[in-house]
Design a binder for these strands. Structure first.
Lengths: 251, 251
DNA sequence: GATTTTTGTTCGTATATCGCACAAAGCGTG
DNA sequence: CACGCTTTGTGCGATATACGAACAAAAATC
């Protein structure tokens, strides 16, 4: 690819969109400039462009994203066959287990939820397609990492901010690599309150016909109500049968 | 705003992202050029930029969006206080009514779901934050249109592709404007299988402290199981009480 | 209320992007 | 395998954009 095949104005604009988050819902031109590292003049031009296109609102002082931004993410969810294919299976799975069922893929060192059937809220945070969690401490993240070669998995773990969310959280590379090895052998991952106290989950890989892992699916449950052993004995078989039904549909 | 305050490269890039949808999950350079109306060379540069940034995958022939795209839409959901504020109330509402509860805002002639507590699937399509429905034939859309002045509402209706999804669907401007008037007077909107056979829903406006309607919230139910009258007598009071609890939290 | 600091806007210029035209590479078809 | 036909890649002049600094306008501080 040549130098001129990259539109830096586009890249800068995208970084401006990503500058908005929970901590910074309303941003001034200077704020954006600080966060993105763009010149104030450039940041302003990006923001005015977003506002003009209806992707952002501007009250003369602060910019905020408008719901039209959701079109962009939604393009992915509707354009990608996998989320739409998985959804009905997750609905079934959630029904059979009485718990929330989700599917996700990897993006960098995070997992991204691409489909979900939520049964009842068990987590403090609300999860939706598009939501992200660190891969190192989530059941689906571990399944997806375990499917990679050791070198790649290790470098993702190293690039992660491996903080101990709970006393249970595994944080060292050694612990995590051993865990990935185990997951790879047994074919599933179990998280026992490593992300949040009270939250357990179990995940398995979803493979296409060539055997490549293309996603993970999981079931989450409340810790005091369900033990890790119960998850393996009761949920795992249902999940595996769901996956087997799926398997034929995947390219 | 001056001419030079608009970055056309950015705008073009965004239109490229939106070119992907369910019918076109994988697109070549020429496809994109056709859909967006951009020059092939420009379309190519946009796509290569997306690929280079990790927002798209490229197999040498076709481009497809990558899950990283979801970051963009998610920026809105996490950065905007309203969705996060509404979510727990929708959870409660869904629990109390035993049905799915949602909140949405208007974007052009569509409503955009910004939060949702789904109970069990009643619709053929799966709804999530970011999902869109035409405003003219959805309960929340009608509530949001009824909150606008007549001229604006009318022009949105006129710009809509008002197709009859079912025999019940109101499609003429006259019918719809009369319906908006009624909704405005009674303070709620009821849809009886106008979007999909078997689907009923009821919606009310959510207003901020200045009295401006900033969103709509609704409860959906299955038609044979629940009648329109039952929705008004049983769900409406619960919804109104949810909204009243909310009201104090809205700026 | 003056001064300092911060923020927003404008402007000329260096530079990167655009769109066109052309070249190259696939892709079926006969 | 040569032939159109379609799609993709590239070079170049014209044009639009980004940069940095300077200027203007608010806030903030004293």
């Amino acid at each position: 690819m040549r130098e001129t095949d990259f539109i830096s104005g586009f890249a800068k604009g995208l970084s401006v969109i990503e500058a908005f988050d929970a901590a910074n819902p309303r941003l001034s031109i200077t704020d954006i400039s600080r966060i993105t590292g763009l010149e104030r003049a450039t940041a302003r031009r990006c923001l005015l462009t977003l506002a003009q296109l209806g992707y952002a609102d501007y009250d003369g002082k602060f910019f905020s994203l408008s719901p039209r931004i959701l079109r962009l993410g939604h393009s992915y969810l509707t354009a990608t066959p996998l989320p739409r294919l998985l959804q009905p299976f997750l609905d079934q799975l959630s029904e059979k287990t009485g718990e929330s069922a989700s599917a996700s893929v990897l993006d960098g060192n995070e997992i991204v939820y691409i489909a979900r059937a939520s049964h009842k809220r068990v987590m403090s945070i609300n999860l939706n397609p598009g939501s992200r969690l660190p891969a190192y401490c989530s059941s689906m993240g571990r399944v997806l990492l375990a499917a990679m070669n050791d070198g790649d998995a290790k470098s993702i773990l190293e690039s992660s901010n491996r903080k101990a969310n709970t006393p249970n959280t595994k944080t060292t590379i050694a612990e995590l690599m051993a865990e990935l090895q185990l997951i790879s052998e047994q074919g599933y991952a179990v998280i026992d309150q490593e992300l949040e106290i009270g939250l357990c989950s179990i995940a398995i890989p979803v493979r296409n016909m060539r055997g490549t892992t293309i996603a993970a699916l999981n079931v989450g449950a409340q810790a005091p109500r369900v033990t890790v052993d119960e998850m393996v004995t009761t949920y795992l078989p249902v999940m595996q049968s769901t996956r087997d039904t799926l398997a034929g549909l995947l390219v």
